[in-house]
């Protein structure tokens, strides 16, 4: 397997607060990697730094053998990395269709766009039914589906998902994670950030555990699930 992304000694600083104190990790092509950790551990900061939303104070980010450390976020997005932000980032007053169309404006492969659009509607029939409705009128689960569908429509091969389970009912969470698995099987690489540690570990191939801006543990997701320390700290009464 080839490494699609490699992060070295990533540091992010907000004013005097060090959100990330030099973390290193990598993602192989076709993997689902999850970063789990408590509130304020630095999970979202990691994703924001990777997608260019915040500038890291030091460290290196390589994506597809290119250094993208200080590349503007829209350029990174055009290289095939799509960040689904926390809170889903809905363009609430625009329709579902407009949300999807907006994602395709930077693509050159116009014939593929049509096919992708059809595939996305096939995969998410509820979005197809609600094409002309404002995205703000969708339910939370549908909005999350739209956010993922939109990321797919950018033509990205790597998706960064920031807390896709946030604010959703358990049944819907199951559905979202099934979708994540499915698009991974279709060939997308996924970096998943979650507070819902159990579900994330069950879905992912490998996992990193983040605490106060440093990496505590890493390994195969299946190993970490049974790790007594992880169990006590993150998996609670499961």
């Amino acid at each position: 397997m080839t490494k699609i992304m490699e992060i070295e000694n990533l540091e992010v600083v907000y004013g005097v607060i060090k959100a990330l104190q030099g973390i290193s990790f990598y993602i192989d092509e076709g993997e689902i990697v999850t970063i789990i950790g408590a509130n304020g551990a630095g999970k979202s900061s990691t994703l924001r730094a990777v997608s260019g939303m915040v500038r890291p104070s030091s460290g290196k980010i390589r994506f597809k053998d290119k250094d993208v450390t200080n590349t503007p976020s829209h350029i990174i997005a055009r290289q095939g990395l799509s960040h689904v932000p926390e809170g889903r980032g809905m363009l609430t007053k625009l329709t579902v269709e407009e949300n999807l169309i907006l994602a395709t404006y930077n693509r050159k492969d116009h014939s593929q766009v049509k096919e992708d659009m059809k595939n996305v509607y096939d995969q998410f029939p509820r979005l197809s039914e609600r094409k002309r409705q404002a995205a703000g009128n969708l339910s939370g689960g549908e909005q999350q589906m739209l956010a993922i569908a939109r990321a797919l429509m950018t033509g990205a091969d790597t998706l960064l998902l920031d807390e896709p389970s946030m604010g959703l009912a358990p049944l819907i969470v199951q559905e979202i994670f099934a979708v994540i698995k499915r698009i991974n099987q279709a060939g997308k690489t996924i970096l998943l950030v979650e507070q819902n540690a159990m579900t994330a570990l069950r879905t992912a191939n490998r996992a990193y555990i983040l605490e106060n801006g440093t990496l505590l543990k890493s390994g195969k997701a299946s190993d970490l699930i049974s790790d007594p320390e992880v169990k006590a700290a993150y998996l609670g009464g499961y």
């Binding site: 976020s73 829209h74 055009r78 799509s82 007053k93 625009l94």
Partner: peptide, 18 residues
Amino acid sequence: LKVKAVREEEVAARTLGL
């Protein structure tokens, strides 16, 4: 449409490559 995307959610617009 791109302009309206900026109005709705600038961060999301950037993640879409705008």
